[in-house]
Design a protein around this nucleic acid. Structure first.
Length: 353
DNA sequence: TCTGGGGTCCTAGGACCC
DNA sequence: TCTGGGGTCCTAGGACCC
């Protein structure tokens, strides 16, 4: 039987800020967009539990958060710093297992099957990992333990904050079945609504559903839903981090249809994407422009060119794509530039000789 | 009330090649 | 005159996650 842990850093960005300024621990603190006295357009990235007690949460419009707590501490993102702290935590985790996988900046899977024999062992090990991260990186975290990635992840949700939860293979179904379908990892708003319409409110309902019915509604995703809701999940913990695309986006302070203003942003974003690509020694094949209009409709326009490391071609292609495709009848809210089809230096050598 | 930025994966139609 | 499959690439859109 496998033993998989999901280690998730609690309120990560704000926890990082609290290291620099411990006095923030007792104050509602928010990392995210500039609230601009309630007129800001962004959202809350994360906030500490003092702020959560007031009703503030991730993804909430920053203007709403400002309305609730104008005196809260509002901090901008310091991504390079969070990345350093993330690497520090990952380094500590790697000391405990050779089989590790970074899921996001603040989440890590590890497979410790070869290190533990029973749940007591697993709990002991998780406790050690947790206290190492706590004492060395000065960061709080929660750990979910089970025999599959899915249940480890869902156990971790229930362990938060600052906790450890283990769910044995035998108890897995009993653990997830009472939860609502929306809590199943991989089920978002759209799928939840469709499932509820079909009469499935809990994961248990879904687990007992007729698989033919699920396939009729969701095709192959129906089989996946059936498997996951029955705790069937054979996905391995795999260390395989290869970035697939690099993008930058910008939301205008006011929706605009002015070409000069939009193209100016395209140039700036293209340069930033280009800088990151050359910094990583990558080349790219495809440039994509994303336009979000004032009515929130979103359109992507992409073009593949010969593989190149030339950052200037991002801007050139992006401006072309914009001019060819923009809907002049609607103001633009957000612009995004993405480079994909990335190849690393080794492969470039193969291609270009 | 007002809705970010950075990603991944999947699907589907059309082009194109054999 | 009508008619194949199989495979891959490209583009656009959609869902989801943190």
């Amino acid at each position: 039987m496998r033993t998989i842990m999901l280690i998730d850093m609690d309120y990560f960005f704000v926890a990082c800020e609290e290291i620099k300024r411990p006095e923030l621990r007792t104050r509602p603190t928010i990392v995210g967009a500039d609230p601009k006295e309630g007129r800001g357009r962004g959202v809350v990235m994360t906030c500490n539990y003092v702020a959560r007690k007031l009703g503030i949460h991730s993804a909430m419009p920053i203007s709403s958060a400002y309305k609730i707590a104008p005196d809260a501490e509002f901090l901008p993102m310091d991504y390079p710093y969070y990345e350093r702290k993330s690497n520090e935590a990952f380094g500590i985790i790697k000391d405990f297992s050779e089989k590790t996988e970074q899921v996001s900046i603040d989440e890590f899977f590890i497979d410790v099957s070869s290190k533990v024999n029973n749940s007591e062992d697993a709990l002991l090990l998780a406790g050690k990992i947790k206290s190492s991260i706590n004492s060395e990186a000065k960061l709080p975290c929660s750990i979910g333990i089970s025999s599959t990635k899915l249940v480890a992840k869902m156990a971790c949700e229930k362990a938060k904050p600052d906790g450890i939860k283990i769910v044995g293979e035998e108890e897995a179904a009993k653990f997830i079945w009472p939860l609502s379908v929306g809590e199943l990892y991989g089920v978002g708003i759209k799928t939840r609504e469709r499932l509820e319409k079909m009469g499935y409110g809990t994961i248990g309902d879904l687990a007992k559903a007729n698989i033919m019915l699920l396939m009729k509604e969701f095709d192959s995703f129906g089989i996946e839903l059936h498997n996951l809701s029955n705790c069937i999940d054979t996905r391995e913990v795999i260390e395989n981090y290869e970035v697939k695309s690099i993008s930058k986006e910008y939301t205008f302070e006011k929706d605009t249809s002015k070409d000069e203003e939009i193209i100016k942003s395209i140039r700036k974003l293209s340069a930033e994407v280009g800088k990151e690509i050359s910094g990583k020694g990558l080349s790219y094949r495809t440039v994509t422009v994303k336009l979000r209009y004032m009515d929130f409709t979103e359109h992507l326009h992409s073009r593949s060119i010969r593989p190149t490391g030339n950052a200037g071609d991002i801007e050139k292609t992006a401006v072309e794509l914009y001019r060819e495709n923009v809907d002049k009848g609607k103001k633009v809210r957000k612009i995004g530039i993405r480079a994909s089809g990335l190849l690393d230096y080794k492969n470039q050598k193969l291609l270009f000789g």
